[in-house]
Design a protein around this nucleic acid. Structure first.
Length: 596
RNA sequence: GGGGCUGUAGUAGAGUCGGUUACAACGCCGGCCUGUCACGCCGGAGGUCGCGGGUUCGAGUCCCGUCAGCCCCGCCA
């Protein structure tokens, strides 16, 4: 029924054929994108991963091939031998890379037929994502989707080459490993050999790469899968890939210098963008002060301005009360934003409510002064002071949040990012990097009534802040750094604690007593006591980095077989039930379902 | 755990105030066509309006619940 490949060998990819090939006899293979039947002449657009080329089948030239082409349908797999020829005068298609030529087919083989696909594999149809994911292998035939995965390949290739040149060794770390406290929820794997015990899939190879430093490998790097059992987002999947690095005998600047050069190489070799180095660096405290968040998008201004002191004694009770009780009042000036409708302002109020803000005060700057529900509460000199602080001019829109400092910063900071998108303040093709440094080492967790590590428990404190570990742990800054690109955290790392005594103190500060520390991290503490070099490292989110390079806003676009928001795979239907025998072997009995 | 958006032939959509047989496009099937390229022309088939319940003389349309996909909060050292 179908033809066999026989002795045919492919000579060219479809998308590579050009006028240079005119006169060549070629053999190409691929999928039928479309067939156009003119009664006599038949055209077939043949597609492979490189592109599309037009096949011309003339009944006068080869009746047998023409008859065969009559049966062919979309997505059938065919092979053809023919001669590359210039298209006749007036029929060149400038929209196609290969549009100057066509292949005059002399022999055609149908290698496989295809059912009519559940959706059209063209660039014009926007298909529902659940259908795309169920038939992902078809979705992945589409050039736009293929482009993303090819981009990903270019990123990993460039990274591997660079790290190899810089002397990093690629060493694999275990996937079946041990659950550790702190951090994200683990994916667990039951042990058959040790009933009742579980492996955990790594949230990152953190401990192992530190052990490799103790072993003297000096520079380690791995492109590696990590697993976190937390809820998904547009830029978060339960299994994702890190570019994971660790280096010995370095400080923060060494790591940042080497890594930003790697990122620059990636941008050059994937999208041919030249980045200027060094990348700017900004302390955490400054980022929070100016942008409200630790991942600021520097492609636009719209900075936060604190006016707590100005409104401390004002007649607007909401502001005055917050200012008088340790809270914070901040505002942003949306230049030329006074045209926003009441509905839009209500939407923005709803937006900040997501982040716990109880309200969003607004002022439209008009020729007649303040147009605002709160204008009447302020004295003229207060109005002027606020205008001056914000640089307000006619046509501007001022937006205010008053709350606890953390809430004010987060709500207004997220509002800033939101407005950047909504008001189209970002220029396409603009890449603004910033290293955020000097993160707090610890933060107080109100629910658990204890300190938790901001980065992770192995992050070293700044040398000058070590005395504060005892007196004021919340003030200690960490030797940690995040690389932020266009408001997205694409990587982060730190210099680690290489001193066993300090690591022990760190665990104590986190409320992990010696016994628990020994139980959970004993092997690390042991290793640190056998001559651990000063070391530090970083991990980049390969998926997020590729998203930005590919210009897409969903992490699923850069993953071949991604999971849905409920962490299921619509293609394989994972997760699924397992055979009772498998459970018995593992010593697992399922609890009765809570529902139904 | 919570908030929001979406769900109608294979696909992506329209469907008015609750009222006759649920529309047209693309795709599919058949026919015609020798220079098209998202070919064109003629004809045809194709529907559990996500699912369940309710209101009503009557529900794609209104109400309640539920499922799925997506976006967000919490969570993500």
């Amino acid at each position: 029924m179908n033809d066999t490949l026989g002795s045919w060998k492919r000579t060219h990819y479809c998308g590579d054929l050009r006028a240079d090939h005119i006169g060549d006899k070629v053999c190409i293979m691929g999928w039928v994108q479309r067939r156009r039947d003119h009664g006599g002449l038949i055209f077939i657009d043949l597609r492979d991963r490189t592109g599309i080329v037009q096949l011309a089948l003339d009944p006068d030239r080869d009746p047998e091939a023409h008859t065969k082409a009559d049966r062919v349908r979309n997505e059938w797999v065919i092979a053809a031998i023919g001669t590359v020829s210039h298209r006749p005068e007036g029929t060149v298609n400038p929209k196609m890379k290969t549009g100057e030529v066509e292949i005059e087919i002399s022999e055609l083989r149908i290698l496989n037929q295809a059912k009519t696909p559940p959706f059209m594999l063209d660039e014009y149809t926007d298909v529902a994502e659940n259908l795309r994911l169920k038939y992902r292998y078809l979705d992945l035939r589409r050039p736009t989707v293929q482009r993303c995965l090819m981009m990903r390949h270019q990123v990993t290739r460039t990274v591997r080459n660079y790290l190899d040149e810089q002397g990093f060794l690629d060493i694999e770390t275990p996937v079946l490993t041990k659950s550790t406290p702190e951090g994200a929820r683990d994916y667990l794997v039951p042990s058959r050999v040790s009933p009742g015990q579980f492996y955990a899939l790594p949230q990152s190879p953190q401990l192992f790469k530190q052990l490799l430093m103790v072993s003297g490998f000096d520079r380690y790097a791995q492109i590696v899968k990590c697993f976190r059992d937390e809820d998904l987002r547009a830029d978060r999947q339960p299994e994702f890939t890190q570019i994971d690095c660790e280096m010995s005998f370095v400080d923060r600047d060494d790591v940042m210098d080497i890594m930003e050069a790697m990122i620059a190489r990636v941008f050059k070799e994937t999208i041919n963008v030249e980045l200027s180095l060094p990348m700017p660096r900004m302390a955490y405290a400054e980022a929070i002060d100016r942008y409200g968040v630790d991942n600021p998008d520097l492609r636009f201004d719209l900075e936060l301005v604190e006016i707590t002191d100005i409104v401390r004694g004002c007649g607007f009770k909401v502001f005055a009360d917050v200012a008088g009780s340790g809270g914070m009042v901040k505002a942003i000036n949306v230049k030329g934003g006074s045209g926003l409708s009441r509905k839009e302002l209500d939407d923005l109020t709803g937006f900040v409510a997501n982040y716990g803000a109880k309200g969003l005060a607004w002022v439209k700057m008009t020729a007649d002064g303040w147009q605002s529900p709160i204008a009447k509460f302020f004295q003229p000199e207060e109005l002027r002071a606020i205008e001056q602080a914000l640089g307000a001019a006619e046509g501007d829109l001022l937006l205010f949040v008053a709350d606890k400092p953390a809430t004010t910063n987060q709500a207004l900071g997220r509002l800033r990012q939101h407005l950047g998108q909504k008001l189209d303040l970002v220029k396409k093709g603009d890449f603004r990097f910033v290293w955020i440094t000097d993160f707090p080492l610890l933060e107080w967790d109100e629910e658990q009534k204890r300190h938790v590590a901001v980065h992770h428990p192995f992050t070293a404190p700044l040398d000058e802040d070590i005395p504060l570990l005892d007196s004021d742990p919340g003030k200690v800054r960490a030797k940690a750094y995040d690389l932020v690109l266009n408001g997205s955290e694409i990587g982060g790392g730190s210099i680690r604690i290489h001193d066993q005594a300090i690591q022990q103190r760190m665990f104590n500060l986190l409320g992990i007593d010696d016994e628990e520390a020994q139980l959970k991290f004993g092997f690390l503490l042991d290793a640190l006591s056998y001559g651990a070099p000063p070391h530090g490292g970083i991990a980049f989110g390969l998926d997020r980095l590729t998203m930005i390079l590919a210009g897409t806003d969903s992490i699923r676009d850069v993953i071949a077989f991604p999971k849905t928001q409920k962490a299921t795979c619509l293609l394989s239907e994972a997760p699924g039930e397992v055979d009772p025998v498998q459970l018995r072997d593992l010593g697992i009995r399922l609890a009765a379902r809570a529902k139904s």
